[in-house]
Computed example of a mutant assay.
Amino acid sequence: MLKNVLKEISSSKVFSIPLIAKNLNITEALVEETVKELSRMEYIIEDMGSPTCETKCSGCSMKSFCNIVPIKTISITDKGKKILENM
């Protein structure tokens, strides 16, 4: 299961627990637990980005389409890439 979820993360353009669950025909809860395990095993790195913006919105050219809520990103580590190569 770990390898299958890792492969889905690798091939997805956007990280989506519901989409991974649908593609693998498993529950979202199982995907969430698997992602935690992949992170614990250092196959992936989760990054929440910066929770604050150093630029004041009134002076920022991106203010019309900025989403101040940080976006979670997932990166596959070299250790994770080795697992994928052996699949």
Rank of each mutant, 00 (worst) to 15 (best):
P70E: 02
A29T: 12
E54C: 07
M1N: 11
K7C: 11
S58M: 10
L19K: 14
L38R: 06
N86H: 07
V5P: 13
I9E: 14
K3P: 11
M41E: 14
M41N: 11
K22R: 09
K82C: 03
K36I: 08
R40N: 15
M41W: 09
T52C: 01
V31I: 00
C53V: 00
E32I: 06
N23G: 06
K3T: 15
T73K: 04
K13Y: 15
T27E: 05
T34Y: 01
K63A: 05
V35D: 03
N25L: 11
D78L: 13
Y43F: 07
S16H: 08
C53N: 01
S11V: 15
I17Y: 08
M1W: 11
K81L: 06
K81A: 04
C53P: 03
E54S: 10
I74P: 02
V5C: 15
G59T: 13
E37P: 09
A29E: 12
M62N: 14
I17H: 07
S50F: 06
K7D: 11
T77P: 03
V14W: 10
I76K: 08
M48C: 15
P70H: 03
S10D: 09
S64T: 03
M62K: 13
K81R: 06
D78S: 14
V5W: 14
I74S: 03
T52L: 03
T73P: 04
E37M: 10
M1S: 12
L24V: 05
K79L: 02
K56R: 09
K72G: 09
T27R: 07
P51W: 01
I44R: 01
S16R: 08
E37F: 11
T34V: 02
E28I: 09
K7L: 13
I20F: 05
I71S: 07
N4R: 12
S12N: 12
K56W: 08
V31Y: 00
V14D: 14
I74Y: 02
S75N: 12
E32P: 07
M1K: 13
S12M: 13
S50R: 06
L2E: 14
E8A: 10
M41K: 12
S64I: 00
E8L: 11
L84S: 04
E8C: 14
M1Q: 11
T73C: 05
G80M: 01
I44Q: 02
N23E: 06
M87H: 11
G80I: 01
K81I: 06
I74L: 04
E28R: 09
R40G: 13
I83C: 06
V5M: 13
L84W: 04
G59H: 14
D78M: 10
P51F: 02
M48T: 15
I17W: 07
V5N: 14
P51D: 02
M62G: 12
N4F: 12
K3L: 15
S64P: 04
S12C: 11
T77V: 02
S50E: 05
T52G: 01
C53E: 02
E85Y: 05
K79P: 03
I9M: 14
C57G: 00
E8F: 08
K3W: 10
